[in-house]
Amino acid sequence: MRGPAVAIGLPFLLFCGLIAAGFLMPGWLRFITLIALAKGLVVLSLMLLMRAGLVSFGQGLYYGLGAYAAGLGVNLLKVTEALALLALGVAVAGAVAWVLGFLLTRYREIFFAMLSLAFSMILYGLLVKSSALGSTDGFNLPTPTFLGFAFAGTAARHALFVLTASVAFAAALLLHRYLGSTRGYLGEAIRENEIRVEYLGASVRGALHVKYVLSAALAGAGGALTAVATGHIDPDLAYWTTSGEFVFVAILSGTGSVAAPFLGSFVFEMIRTYAFAYSPNTWQMVVGATMLLVIIFMPGGLWSLFRRRPRLVTRS
């Protein structure tokens, strides 16, 4: 057992290091890190579901909803505060998940995956059909204010980085506490054996419903932050390949720790950007081959590099 001081202290040091690094790194690397953190939130949301044995091929639904909520918040409701946009993204994603959760928590395995995919593709179809929202071209978002301060240029990029890193850190910390709690462990119990969980007096569907809404809220936050950081949104955010990419990164990361999704997300973005630059014609092949190698040689994901005794979290 590690002491609570270490449990909080080490991540906090890491967080401070990340913020400091954000000020020092070149602009392009800061942007990639920022996107990796925002997408890491979505991967984190998948990890939460995976721990309960559910794999969503439609997390793009909430990623897209979060982004469009933020985008419409700026352009329609004239909300300019970044934190408010973030809250909007989280709220919209969470609310939709709460409704869909009643249906989706009845499904398991591939049927859960495919039904969530179907819902994300329906959102995609709606967005493509909405010419008022720019159809597939999407629309742009202006730079928001941060706690009332309007930064411009590089200062705005720094502020955005600090915001995203803080949100990611807070989310990871809270999720870590949650996963360590009794309600959190219920996920693994459900994955192992639902019927026994029911015999023990817990409601499987209730527990899954909570996890599903939490997961959607995280993905919504990731979407809102990506929208604000990129300054542009389009329906591709909800397309199935986007969702598939998140599942891939989740497997790449491993489900061993709440830090894994962010690490995996960063590694993935770096592999892809260098594959783009140095192998522009065959970058997909590089990504695909990397994927195979990781799966073959690192069954626990990248996070297994940080464990002395890799714990397999895959099902037998």
Partner: peptide
């Protein structure tokens, strides 16, 4: 010249545009 593939969606392309300007 540096040639970049335009595939991958807008988030990816904004990233790659920044890479071109700030890294390359």
């Amino acid at each position: 010249t540096v040639v970049i593939d335009e595939a991958g969606g807008t988030t990816k392309q904004v990233t790659e545009y920044r890479n071109l300007v700030q890294r390359e």
